[in-house]
């Protein structure tokens, strides 16, 4: 009994140590970035219109992409959670594709369908929508790489809702669409919101795909890259520190909202 207790203590100690290293691995570079950046340089970055525009562009394009594609992703997630159909595992695999392919390659792939030479690009132009070098293109690139996070989280959320509740609602006279909006979606809401936050956060931080589809207007990650390659670490640090601070603040607020809901 005593020896097994000792084993547990040692195990816990070892695991805590190993886990601590992972936390340090995540926190150390971020802490280092702030330690190496003066408040004055961050203030200068806030005053720089190009920086402010890039941060704002990143924020709204990633949010727009998340909202726009959630209208398609949530119904798909529901179908994947509730229905069995041939090649379902293939569909699940396709959804995960953007996670595994390199993001620069993803950018090339997205560029292929958005360019004026493609049917989609030409059709969009007829309606006055230009993708290349345009926020619309940034939205598409961000959504492409981040949509699996929303679909997977929402699918797991819907799968966790007992099907019996939906069936009972039908026996009470509710239509299937009413059941979805009054039972399934509210009960899966936490998971859907988690997916929403993850998709938004992933889109916000996207660099590889965005730089290929739209170098300009510059999103914050593209601007940080440009400042780094043109002027060096010293000039890119304040922009990076500001962008990370904004992302963290929004991320924390959304997590708190989710926890409260």
């Amino acid at each position: 009994m005593i020896s097994s207790f000792k084993n547990i203590s040692w195990m816990r100690l070892t695991f805590t140590f190993l886990g601590g290293i992972v936390l340090l691995f995540i926190l150390a570079p971020i802490a280092g970035m702030y330690l190496n950046t003066s408040i004055g340089s961050i203030t200068n970055a806030i005053g720089d219109e190009e920086v402010r525009d890039s941060v704002w562009l990143s924020l709204w394009t990633s949010m727009a992409g998340t909202i726009l594609f959630s209208f398609f992703a949530i119904p798909l997630a529901y179908i994947l959670a509730r229905k069995n159909f041939p090649l379902k595992s293939l569909v699940n695999g396709i959804i995960d594709l953007p996670i595994i392919i390199p993001h620069s390659a993803a950018g090339i792939a997205v560029l292929g369908i958005l360019t004026r030479d493609s049917w989609f690009g030409r059709s969009a132009e007829v309606f006055g929508v230009k993708f290349i070098g345009n926020p619309a293109g940034i939205i598409m690139a961000m959504a492409f790489v981040s949509i699996p996070f929303l679909i997977n989280a929402a699918r797991d959320g819907f799968a966790a809702v007992p099907e019996r509740l939906e069936k009972v609602a039908l026996t009470l006279g509710a239509s299937p669409i009413r059941v979805f909006f009054t039972i399934s979606l509210p009960l899966a809401w936490r998971s859907v919101l988690s997916g929403f936050i993850l998709m938004w956060a992933r889109g916000l931080s996207e660099f590889g795909a965005v730089i290929i589809v739209a170098y300009n207007p510059k999103t914050a990650p593209v601007l940080i890259f440009e400042r780094f390659t043109s002027y060096g670490l010293k000039y890119s640090l304040p922009v990076a520190a500001l962008f990370v601070a904004v992302c963290l603040a929004i991320f924390i607020v959304l997590r708190l909202i989710k926890k409260k809901s």
Partner: peptide, 8 residues
């Protein structure tokens, strides 16, 4: 189901 008027 919703048209049967049967409660479970």
């Amino acid at each position: 189901i919703q048209q049967r008027r049967v409660s479970i």
